[in-house]
């Protein structure tokens, strides 16, 4: 667990993507995740890749920073690729590695699936990079609003989401602090048989839970002192509003999806 992950790490900015309504971004990503599975030709993959990369560039966040945040996923992408090289036996034999045949179908399929993974992760991470957790929860609350009719606790869900997201960095630091404190008392997390390492987690979790409860009590107290009474009649500091740039972006995305279906084989 280190800070190389972009976990809920929002990078503030003024780019077009930053200023889009979070609902627009969420809807586009939702449909992107679905339509990625429809791509099946080089041209259609190229179109989606171009869309993702250009979006990443438009955010004006350093590409190296974005890719660094994907580190945990690189492994999965590479793993999928090699799995395909070993398992798939389609097409003709391209070459042999230590008398193990590599098929052309395997290379094609492997790169397709890895690319698909990469696009999915890249685009979803753009959302969390350019949208603050508060905006995301506001958007979710607004998008789920119709569900209020069937007594679905939309406001509570949004509140819990924003609290969870807000506390990711805090609890991460807390975990690090506790594990260092326990290590200085002689708890060994890194070596030894698995059984010992599992046992070593107990002195890490106990203080973590206790401090989480303490934080929860403080937060509940602070919220009530400020007059929090649930979602009924609550007003917002920042109202979400769909403006022209959202409409144009949505239109562009629809055109790309049409393009995707035209370039499918």
């Amino acid at each position: 667990m280190n800070n190389a992950f972009i976990i809920g790490q929002y990078v503030p900015g003024e780019s077009l993507i930053h200023r889009l309504d979070p609902r627009t971004k969420i809807m586009i990503i939702f449909f992107f995740v679905i339509f990625v599975f429809f791509a099946n030709s080089a041209a259609s993959y190229g179109l989606l890749t171009a869309f993702s990369i250009i979006s990443a560039i438009v955010t004006r966040i350093k590409l190296s920073y974005i890719f660094k945040g994907l580190t945990p996923v690189w492994f999965l992408i590479v793993f999928t690729f090699f799995l395909h090289l070993i398992v798939t036996r389609e097409g003709e034999v391209l070459f042999e590695v230590l008398s193990f045949p590599i098929y052309s179908g395997a290379v094609i399929q492997g790169s397709e699936i890895s690319l698909r993974f990469f696009l999915l992760i890249l685009v979803t991470s753009l959302l969390t990079l350019t949208t603050s957790p508060i905006e995301i929860t506001d958007a979710i609350e607004s998008l789920l609003h119709p569900l209020k009719r069937i007594k679905f606790p939309v406001h509570e869900l949004a509140l819990m989401m924003s609290i969870s997201l807000r506390f990711i960095p805090t609890l991460m630091q807390e975990t690090e602090k506790i594990s260092k404190a326990q290590a200085s008392r002689g708890v060994d997390f890194k070596t030894g048989p698995i059984k010992d390492r599992v046992q070593a987690i107990v002195p890490l979790l106990v203080p973590l839970f206790v401090s989480a409860f303490k934080r929860a009590e403080e937060l509940a107290m602070a919220m009530e002192a400020r007059g929090y009474q649930g979602g009924e009649g609550r007003t917002k500091l920042r109202e979400l509003r769909i403006v022209n740039r959202d409409r144009y972006t949505a239109l562009l995305f629809i055109l790309i999806i049409i393009g995707l279906f035209l370039t499918r084989s």
Binding site: M1, E156, L159, M160, M161, I163, S164, L165, F167, I168, L171, M172, T175, L208, F209, A212, F213, R215, A216, E217, L219, A220, M223, E224, Y228
Partner: peptide, 17 residues
């Protein structure tokens, strides 16, 4: 009720970590 909501959110975060 509020405290419960907050506790569950924090446990969710710890769980994810």
């Amino acid at each position: 009720k509020l405290l419960k909501l907050i506790v569950l959110s924090l446990l969710g975060t710890i769980s994810m970590l």
